[in-house]
Design a protein around this nucleic acid. Structure first.
Lengths: 137, 137
DNA sequence: TTGCGTGCAAAGGTTTTGCATGGCA
DNA sequence: TGCCATGCAAAACCTTTGCACGCAA
């Protein structure tokens, strides 16, 4: 059975919350609790159903920590650039560069692998690199 | 209560299997099934307990797909190549290429970001790309 | 009437916990 | 004896499914 053809109040409420929290990951429960605290009743089932649709449509990035999924809403233009995620502070930097595009092409061609630009490449950001150096001294 | 002070037969069996499967992610169940098929009886509880210890010790990388965790043992030399992870089937391909090294340098220099090669870059592998195409027809 | 979205309750599946047992020093 | 690891069974937990109801075209 198809799901997602109509816009509904529930979906709008969920989407609004996700948009308000673009800078952090939220769980299905976070959404439920927020809505309950604001006298908006939406079932957990609906939340999951909608999140799954958004994920399929690549509107969300998800991470699983300790067996629970966390969702982060992505702006539309996330499809056109890449993400560097700092493993120390958790911050995600958005970036574009020709070199990355070239690499994607290369990997697609020579390794037969289609890179999903929405994923985040892990590493350590400038600030945290500095911090680590300082700590070592 | 602390866990992990002793080496035991069970732990050795689990570790051996993990080491034999360094090129792919395995679930707790995969380990259980393998051991059962080889007349080695190890409880699921023990498997999880040990996996959790290994994860804490950073000996494993884990990924969650469809609500189940997959574990991959890490060799030290994982630092010297990169990983492409298929988001459909979960398989991880190890690869090296000059283009990727160049990109890392570039990102390090121009974006001030140090990429961690142990991370996996997400995407869709050849096989699954094919499958997706076939399904669409 | 038909089709879709919703939410409750129940089911499903993975992972963790409680506890008695057994091994080893 | 004391300490730890094990594994069964049960619990806990998140997520999905089944189904009846409600609403709108």
């Amino acid at each position: 059975m198809k799901y997602g053809t109509y816009q509904t109040v529930q979906k709008q409420l969920i989407l609004r919350f996700l948009k308000q929290n673009q800078n952090r990951y939220v769980s299905a429960n976070d959404i439920l609790e927020y809505l309950m605290n604001h006298q908006e009743k939406v079932g957990l089932t609906t939340i999951y159903r909608f999140l799954n649709v958004l994920e399929e449509e690549k509107m969300l990035r998800t991470e699983t920590i300790k067996n629970t999924r966390y969702f982060q809403y992505m702006k539309d233009d996330c499809k056109n650039h890449f993400h560097l995620k700092c493993e120390k502070c958790g911050k995600v930097e958005h970036f574009t560069c020709e070199e990355m595009k070239d690499l994607c092409q290369h990997i697609g061609k020579d390794h037969g692998f289609k890179i999903n630009p929405q994923i985040a490449i892990g590493g350590v950001c400038k600030k945290c690199q500095k911090k680590i150096k300082e700590d070592q001294q």
